[in-house]
Simulated scan of single mutants.
Amino acid sequence: MAKGKDFYGKDIAEVIEQACRELGAGREDLDIEVLDTGSSGIFGLCKKKAHIRVRRKAAGPEPQPAAESPRIEPVDPETGEAETVEPAPVETRTERRRPARVSEPAVEPTDRADDEATGEAVAPVEEEPEEPPSAEALEQIRADLGQLLELMGFPSEVRVVFEDNTVHCTITGAHEEQIVGPEGRTLDSLQYLLRKMVAACVPDRIMLALDAGGFRERRAGELRERALELAEQVKADGKTQAIPALNPSERRVVHMALQEDKGVRSRSVGEGLFKKVLIYKPGKGRRPSSRKRRGGQGGRTSGD
């Protein structure tokens, strides 16, 4: 059982007990790796079982008996006879058995950040490529999204495919406008909720994108045009311009549209999921320095 055996159950305690019972061993005799703690899902959908991988601990080498010290037989200088001296007892140390260690599930990063100063994507840490979701997982996502739309009162046709490390979910039907909402806010909220619902089916390193009626492509085109127009205004009058309330993918569209223009810079500011993008002339969009100048005067902020 070098590779270990997988066990599934309702929760971690139950599945460990099941493994000990099936393997006929105590918990301290097993190496237990927790792969998933399980979850009850959202709205009862996409429930996830607890998952562990168990290996028997390798048996350590048998303790070797301590070698006896040779007897020392000095010669009595008066009689010339050898004297027998018994060896001193050798103390042995018994190694304490260490308790079994249950490894915690690895915490993986959930999002890819963009460079706030330049708008360029930060190079991700090199990792092993993630296995694509199975056909069964994609079908489960399609069914969950379809049921969610039914509960919202917007029954629609749903198509789910996996391309470029992204699960693309496309909605078509008579309710596209309501599903998209003002400036895509309803669609963004629905995408966030779906991501949480299918967390058991889609690893964090695989992205999920939700679209309805081709809204994402139209929105990206509009943002690129607006970014270029504002960039021309900034170069003409030097005043900083802003595009408010953009989600991460929309902010990336703006940054990419302006990255080749040496006359302007862009960066994201704000808190939370939705931030605004500032477009400014080089040297005017820097954050104020935390250091104070001589004489107690702080650095000035310009451009915002």
Rank of each mutant, 00 (worst) to 15 (best):
P61D: 11
R293H: 13
T92D: 10
R71A: 15
E17R: 10
L230E: 08
R96A: 14
K239N: 06
E128V: 12
D211L: 07
G272D: 05
E232N: 03
A245C: 01
P105W: 04
K10F: 03
R21N: 07
Q233M: 05
A121R: 15
S289F: 02
I141C: 15
F7S: 05
E136I: 01
R300V: 08
A88V: 13
A137Q: 09
S302W: 09
E91D: 13
Y280E: 08
Q140D: 06
G296W: 03
E163D: 12
K10M: 00
D204I: 00
L138W: 06
I32Q: 11
A143F: 02
E163G: 03
P74V: 11
E14C: 04
T118R: 07
T37Y: 09
S268G: 06
R267K: 12
T166W: 02
A123E: 14
E250D: 11
F7Q: 01
E157V: 07
L208C: 09
V54C: 09
L278W: 08
E139Y: 01
Q259I: 10
V85L: 15
V34L: 14
G213P: 05
L23C: 10
S134P: 07
L30N: 07
G221L: 03
G41R: 03
G303H: 05
P132T: 03
I179M: 10
D237G: 07
R195Q: 14
A199E: 10
M152Y: 13
G60C: 05
F154P: 00
T186W: 08
L23A: 09
G214E: 11
I279M: 04
A59W: 00
L187V: 09
L149D: 13
Q140N: 11
